[in-house]
Amino acid sequence: MPGKVLVVDDATFMRAMIKDILTANGYEVVGEATNGAEALVRYEELRPDLVTMDITMPEMDGVTAVKQLMSRFPDAKVIMVSAMGQQALVVDAIQAGAKDFVVKPFDVNRFLEAVRRAMG
């Protein structure tokens, strides 16, 4: 069941790659954001089925964004995109309500599996 995704990442390359993977697998990337604050605005506006959320971003990091997002939209589905060594932050995000996480550099199948499960 394809769905609408909001891709949040400050790196253009990562956004492009995630978008490509999702699009190639039948998902619709409805929007992109480059930091947490922007993500909150875009979420409210687009109401996507899923958000992929980078952790380290300028202005507002991914974990803070998830906390604020979940308090306003408890049904939001978020997958964290973490770098290596950010275990503690990932745990924070999951405690805040993120559905799952992947670690960069990630395996495409693994990423898609996380997306599929989070949407299901």
Binding site: M84, Q87, V90, V91, I94, D100, F101, V102, F106
Partner: peptide
């Protein structure tokens, strides 16, 4: 699998 500690947590 990466961050298996987090998986265990989940």
């Amino acid at each position: 699998c990466p961050m298996k500690g987090v998986r265990a947590f989940m």
